[in-house]
Write a protein that binds this DNA or RNA. Structure first.
Length: 819
RNA sequence: AGGCCCGUAGCUCAGUUGGUUAGAGCGCUACGUUGACAUCGUAGAGGUCAGCGGUUCAAGUCCGCUCGGGCCUACCA
């Protein structure tokens, strides 16, 4: 290394030995892109994140909420992945055998729609190419996109065990699905039956209640006059869906409604059709609404379906699976779209003088979450899962504390939903997914089994004579098994024994019912244990103004772009510090720029330390505070307190508070004060014992404390610390996580140093107030009412003077209590 | 209709069991290139804690009501 003075004679001569080449090699520029990909590759090549069930260390497991295999990670995934990785890295450093299991979901409807869109571009369709070729196309699509999720997790620095990566439709998980279906069928919890379901005419499939979104619609309330049979009396019935009247089979009233008591036993005549509609009494009718009389369409309304069942009414299907009027709707209506039919019916009613009046009416209408169109309630034969008993177990698990929801405000929501749960429609008229493991013979008899052979054997029939159910299972059916199917269930594997039940689930509150509740129910039922002990529910990531991100609003932030611009660590830090329980996350790139600056600060502080510490200074595994000067004892005390606080906050899932604490410790305590206080000592102007060792030791522990949040930067810097091999020979990722050190805690030093800091701050404020030029040295006399404190300040007077650009007044001029 | 959450500095938000002078980041103002960092440093301005009432020695914090905003659940035709 050429000496600076030789190169440039005007530079002051180098007085200390030159730093090692490794220290000198540190680039002045802080550039995350220069090391992030290299470290991620190295970590995984070295297998640091491969979990070993035989290690003997206590296990800690997190299962990733599997993203859509053909999708890409959005900012919400980045938030959840950051928190999961943070927890897993923290626990790993705390000595746990930490497993973060990654994987992807086949996402039935979503993926099928994507492939159908592709086909449409090519001018063909699912129906045209047939089931077999369609599935080939979808698998090809899956393989094409399969690496995307892994690549994006890599960008974030995910310390997931990719040797255990799973896919919901891979062989093992598919076996788990069949196993579950057969078990629940044998227990009578899965049944096939004809019920009213939510039908999506656009997707041509049944969907579950959760896949129906209720939207406010400005519609009309049509009042239709009916003729009472054998009388001159006209009664008026109100409806929002006049087209369904073509399938009416009764008129219902409340049993106690005195106004209509005389109608009991009689009937009305259905306009346009002429059908005889008996009057029925049913408590489901609200006498207060409309006229207190309800037209009953058992085939196209859930309430009417129930009324129909109670009174043995026929169900006439007037709307078909594509949302058009069927033959049963009659001449002039058959073949019309359901909304066109509505207009036609209203027209005809008006012509016939049957339309008493029309009011504007605002009401909620169920829409298909995926298709977007209004749901058509239809009677259909589907597979249902009775989850009522499982729901009670899931309720108990939360009530008795085996399963904790964080934040706990979700407990009420959880209870409300589970207490009112209804059978889950699990079959879907789709092709992409786990095919229902049920087979039928020529007579339509059902045989259920793990495969065709077993189904046939169980029924004692010839497998060749059986046809498999064409439907697939709801995507969430396989997702519900995720925490244990990924570990090998139903096999009794070492992974399952070691890592199940898992510890934490981190996911968005939007899939509390879709996924979390179902995992809890299936997990408890099938394994007898909660699938995870704690659920940390995150909010929705919004833009800087708190608005929802959407493609149409153009405010979508892509985590890959953000990682490229600010570095993955800054992205992670921002997401973690903004994760306040129970609140949405307003993500402001300006703020991320601030945390990139924090990375820069850490980079430069380390660069400074490496350049200034003595050649023999080293990171210490143990460093007794005895014999150290106050500034050194102070920073060690602050470090110890920070370590204690950060561990406690991580344990409480208060990532925001932990990050805040780390930020202020590093920037405030360490950089603004400790390093500034160390400068004269490091320069040799006023030597203090072990200043370099302390600085390196504090940096080591600070980097370790920060590692779960900022893994890349901390690894890159930690590798350069002299003596860090004593902490861990290879990587900071496996180095122990620092905890509070009782021996470093020193309240007295903290109190005195707080006074010293206040003195400096006040002098600086005074200078600013009196507009003393920055370069001008002011006179300073120090003193304090407290004799011990006065001694302390006197002892550190040169340091204080240095920090306020002051010159000490001649000795003997101090006045107690004055500065 | 029921449930949940929110309303604190210009903006986005912290504020644990009620307890000195209510904090952070960004933004703003003034000064500054002092031996790592201008992705920086020093100092500073800025708040009737939505409103009203109550409990208390003490309320941003607990209770009630009002206003405003958001979310979830729900078969009112």
């Amino acid at each position: 290394i050429p000496s600076r003075s030789a190169e440039n004679p005007r530079e002051p001569p180098v007085t200390t030995a030159p730093p090692t080449l490794r220290r000198e090699a540190m680039d002045k520029r802080f550039d995350p892109a220069s090391y992030e990909p290299r470290l991620q590759r190295w970590w995984h090549e070295r297998g640091f994140f491969r979990a070993d069930p035989a290690s003997g260390r206590p296990p800690f497991a997190i299962m990733i909420p599997p993203p859509n295999v053909t999708g890409k990670l959005h900012i919400g995934h980045a938030l959840q992945s950051t928190l999961q990785d943070l927890l897993v890295r923290w626990k790993r450093m705390c000595g746990f055998e930490a497993l973060w299991l990654p994987g992807t979901d086949h996402a039935g409807i979503a993926t099928q729609l994507m492939v159908e869109r592709e086909l449409a571009k090519e001018g063909t369709s699912r129906a045209e190419i047939g089931r077999e070729r369609f599935l080939e196309r979808t698998w090809a699509w899956k393989h094409e996109h399969h690496g995307n999720i892994r690549r994006q997790l890599d960008l974030l620095g995910a310390s997931a065990d990719f040797t255990r990566e799973r896919f919901t439709m891979d062989e093992g998980l598919s076996r788990a699905v069949a196993e579950t279906f057969v078990r629940l069928y044998d227990e009578g919890l899965i049944t096939r039956g004809e019920y009213m379901v939510n039908w999506s005419p656009q997707l041509q499939t049944a969907v579950s209640d959760l896949e129906v979104e209720s939207k406010t619609v400005h519609g009309h309330l049509y009042h239709v006059a009916y003729q009472v049979e054998g009388s001159d009396e006209r009664i008026v019935v109100a409806t929002t869906r006049p087209e369904t009247m073509l399938g009416d089979t009764a008129i219902a009233k409340h049993p106690d409604d005195e106004r209509y008591r005389h109608l009991g036993g009689g009937a009305a005549i259905l306009p346009l059709v002429g059908r005889r509609l008996p009057f029925v009494d049913d408590a489901a009718v609200d006498p207060e609404f409309g006229t207190g009389l309800v037209k009953v369409t058992p085939a196209h309304d859930p309430t009417d379906f129930e009324i129909g069942r109670r009174h043995g009414l026929p169900a006439i299907e007037v709307i078909d699976r594509s949302g058009r009027m069927s033959e049963a709707a009659g001449e002039g209506f058959a073949g019309l779209d359901r909304f066109a039919a509505r207009r036609r019916v209203v027209e005809r009613l008006r012509e016939e003088g049957r339309l008493a009046r029309v009011e504007d009416h605002v009401h909620n209408v169920g829409h298909s979450q995926r298709g977007g169109e209004p749901i058509e309630p239809l009677i259909s034969t589907q597979w249902f899962c009775d989850v009522s008993a499982m729901a009670r177990r899931a309720l108990d698990a939360v009530r008795d504390g085996r399963l904790a929801l964080v934040p706990e405000t979700y407990v009420k929501t959880w209870e409300h939903w589970l207490e009112n749960i209804k059978p889950w429609c699990i079959s879907r008229q789709l092709w992409w997914g786990h095919r229902v493991p049920a087979w039928y013979d020529a007579e339509g008899r059902v045989f259920v089994g793990r495969d065709a052979g077993e189904a046939a054997a169980r029924g004692g029939v010839d497998p060749a004579a059986l046809t498999q159910d064409p439907d697939v299972l709801d995507t969430w059916f396989s997702s519900a098994l995720w925490p244990f199917s990924t570990l090998g269930w139903p096999e009794d594997t070492e992974d399952l024994r070691t890592f199940y039940p898992t510890d934490v689930l981190v996911t968005g509150h939007d899939i509390l019912f879709f996924w979390v509740a179902r995992m809890a129910m299936f997990g408890l039922h099938l394994t007898g244990e909660v699938p995870f002990r704690t659920v940390h529910l995150t909010g929705l990531v919004r833009d800087a103004e708190g608005k929802k991100m959407s493609k149409t609003a153009g405010n979508v932030l892509d985590p890959a772009d953000l990682a490229a611009e600010y570095g993955a660590d800054a992205l992670r830090f921002t997401l973690a510090i903004l994760d306040v329980p129970g609140r949405d996350v307003p993500l402001d790139p300006e703020r991320m720029a601030g945390y990139r600056a924090f990375g820069n600060k850490i980079w430069n502080a380390t660069r400074f330390a490496l350049a200034r510490v003595g050649e023999d200074d080293r990171v210490q595994t143990e460093l007794p505070a005895d014999g150290l000067a106050a500034p050194e004892r102070w920073i060690l005390s602050r470090l110890s307190a920070t370590a204690g606080e950060v561990n406690a906050r991580f344990a409480d899932f208060r990532f925001d508070e932990a990050c805040n604490r780390l930020y202020h410790f590093f920037w405030g305590d360490l950089c603004d004060w400790s390093i500034e206080l160390a400068k004269p000592a490091l320069a040799g102007d006023a030597p203090r014992p072990r200043v370099g060792d302390v600085l390196l030791t504090v940096l080591d522990r600070s980097l370790r404390l920060l590692h779960p949040v900022m893994p890349f930067l901390t690894e890159e810097l930690w590798q350069r610390l002299p003596g860090r091999e004593a902490i861990h020979p290879e990587t900071i990722a496996l180095a122990p996580y620092p905890t509070a050190e009782e021996g470093w805690r020193d309240d007295e030093v903290e109190r005195r140093m707080a006074a010293l800091i206040e003195v400096v701050t006040r002098v600086r404020a005074l200078r600013a107030e009196l507009e003393v030029p920055a370069a001008e040295r002011v006179g300073l006399a120090l003193g304090a009412g407290d004799a011990a404190l006065a001694d302390f300040l006197a002892e550190h007077a040169p340091l204080i003077a240095d920090l306020c650009r002051a010159e000490l007044s001649p000795a003997g001029t101090e006045r107690p209590g004055a500065v």
